[in-house]
């Protein structure tokens, strides 16, 4: 197990180098001069002079060849210094740490929403198979999985914020601000989890030991909650785990719709401001989070399902 974790962490290093190399190359290919951008940010567009631009270019090391710049950046990154924003001149890592909690809150809320909806819906659907309720749930799940989150977000705003006025249209604040973004982000995941819970539960309910328990005279409630549920959960947890990384990905669009001040919105804003160092920092952080979450999910399987052993793999 330890060997496996070490191998995965080595993979993390390679992924980070790969991702930063790709973004660095793209920055080099991209139109726009970072030194000029910094000069505009510091002195304003009207005071822009060639001398200032050149001075900043030398001072920030932007005159060095691209691979030297990359190695320098990598060296700073190892010590936790991600450089300064080209637009605000604030340290990138401070800005990112400031935005990170909002993204975590949103992702967590979406996870909670999706599980709160999906698990009961899946169980009821399985227990009452072929009932109108079952068909209703499955149709909802089908729509949920094929609806782009930006459409859903806008529709939710339209009905619940604009027409009914139950929630704020966008912004960050209390629980009321969080509900619509969390539903938007959680719906795709809820749809997948509902279907999986249902089919997993149906599978378990057909096992012999369930029939045996039923013939012993257990009530349906006892049967479902103490016998069936536990065994139907392993595939569900697998899929939920796989999706957590993708929740992060969804935050980019959902945060942009709801003006939610998280990492995803920071990334999109930086892209439009052509704030290269901030983009680089955000991309790096997304990569690290993504790999770490997947690693945690994989490790947790070993404890949940004793049939999985990673040593055998290698």
């Amino acid at each position: 197990m330890l060997k496996y974790i070490i191998r995965r962490l080595a993979m993390l290093v390679i992924v980070v180098i790969g991702v930063t190399l790709v973004t660095f190359t793209m920055i080099h290919l991209a139109p726009g001069d970072p030194a000029e951008l910094m000069a505009i940010a510091r002195y304003g567009l009207e005071n822009l002079s060639e001398e200032d631009i050149e001075r900043i270019r030398v001072a920030e090391g932007l005159d060095a060849p691209i691979f030297i710049q990359y190695l320098r950046w990598l060296g700073h990154t190892v010590t936790g210094d991600l450089g300064r924003s080209l637009v605000t001149a604030d340290p990138v890592q401070e800005e990112i740490l400031l935005k990170l909690p909002a993204t975590f809150q949103l992702a967590l809320a979406a996870l909670v929403v999706s599980l709160l909806v999906a698990v009961p819906a899946g169980i009821i659907s399985a227990v009452k198979q072929h009932s109108p309720l079952d068909y209703l749930t499955m149709t909802g799940a089908l729509l949920g999985v094929s609806m782009p989150n930006f459409c859903l977000g806008l529709l939710l705003i339209l009905f619940f914020a604009v027409k009914l006025g139950w929630f704020p249209v966008y912004g960050y604040g209390g629980l009321s601000h969080m509900i619509l973004p969390a539903i938007t982000l959680g719906t795709g995941m809820a749809a997948i989890t509902t279907r999986l819970t249902r089919s997993s539960m149906l599978n378990v309910l057909r096992q012999d030991y369930i029939t045996a328990a039923r013939s012993k005279g257990l009530s349906e409630g006892q049967l479902i909650f103490s016998h069936a549920l536990k065994n139907s959960f392993i595939p569900v947890i697998t899929i939920v785990g796989l999706q957590i990384g993708h929740l992060l990905e969804g935050t980019v669009i959902v945060e942009s719709i709801f003006a939610w001040p998280g990492l995803g919105k920071l990334l999109v804003d930086s892209i439009f401001a052509r704030d290269f160092s901030m983009i680089q920092g955000c991309a790096l952080l997304f990569a690290v989070l993504f790999v770490l979450i997947n690693l945690l999910v994989d490790i947790s399987y070993v404890y949940l399902d004793p049939q999985i052993r990673y040593e055998k793999e290698s």
Partner: peptide
């Protein structure tokens, strides 16, 4: 190992 949509973005 990297979220594709974010890399594409």
């Amino acid at each position: 190992a990297f979220p594709g949509l974010i890399l594409a973005l």
